[in-house]
């Protein structure tokens, strides 16, 4: 198998039980093809086209664009999120099928970035959504974005990319944080009906 590199082979040798091998194989297949929903929330959107087109060609890593959230594996949040956008992003994220991952690009999702004193952008993305991989930069170069995808693939292979489970387990925490900024204008309950079994109302 050409596609199995040295690191993969070494990992495979260490596995003991047959179930572990199955898990490993599932993760291996998952990481080979990552459909990306590039939600261009901010400036970072401008470095996505060079990443996915001819010059850097992210498709070499199995990364390509998805048409709708339902088909996407990873949502790329590229930069600051205005409050109005965050609402749409959360809804988009909740629509995605599991397994699902989040990549954040740039300074702004980490600690506000240069918009730290803006009244309309959120400062810490990981309070509202589980973020798997963060790439620093303003804006991250296409190389850095590719490294981000490689780090995500690594995380998937290790079986630690469990953002979606984290979101489901700690839904109270996330929803409370979201409520802090949205107030009584929360998202409708149907966007995460597995949580609101009664149809949902906040």
């Amino acid at each position: 198998m050409d596609n199995l590199n040295k690191k993969d082979k070494a990992q495979l040798k260490e596995l003991k039980s047959p179930m572990a091998v199955v898990d490993w194989a599932v993760n291996w297949f998952r990481k080979q093809s990552i459909f990306m929903l590039a939600y261009g929330t901010g400036c970072g959107a401008i470095e996505i086209p060079p990443t996915v087109t001819a010059r850097y060609d992210a498709e070499r890593f199995g990364v390509r664009g998805a048409a709708t959230p339902r088909q996407a594996d990873v949502i790329v949040l590229s930069g600051y999120l205005a409050v109005k956008t965050l609402k749409r992003v959360i809804r988009t994220y909740e629509q995605m099928q599991e397994p699902k991952y989040v990549i954040a690009l740039g300074s702004c999702p980490i600690n506000g970035g240069m918009y730290w004193d803006s009244y309309n952008t959120i400062k810490q993305l990981d309070r509202y959504l589980p973020v798997d991989v963060t790439v620093a930069g303003c804006m991250p170069r296409p190389e850095a974005v590719l490294e981000g995808f490689m780090a995500l693939k690594d995380k998937i292979q290790r079986g630690e990319a469990e953002g979606a489970r984290d979101y489901r387990d700690n839904i109270e925490k996330y929803k409370n944080n979201q409520k802090e900024i949205f107030g009584d204008k929360m998202l409708p309950g149907y966007t995460c009906d597995w949580y609101f079994s009664d149809g949902g109302s906040f």
Binding site: S107, D126, A136, R141, A151
Partner: peptide
């Protein structure tokens, strides 16, 4: 220009004193 981390709390760094990204992952 490449600095990728799995933890958002790890982007604080003292240049000269520590090496960027010496931690795991």
């Amino acid at each position: 220009y490449v600095y990728v981390s799995e933890d958002m709390n790890r982007f604080i760094y003292t240049p000269g004193e520590e090496k960027l990204g010496k931690r795991e992952k």
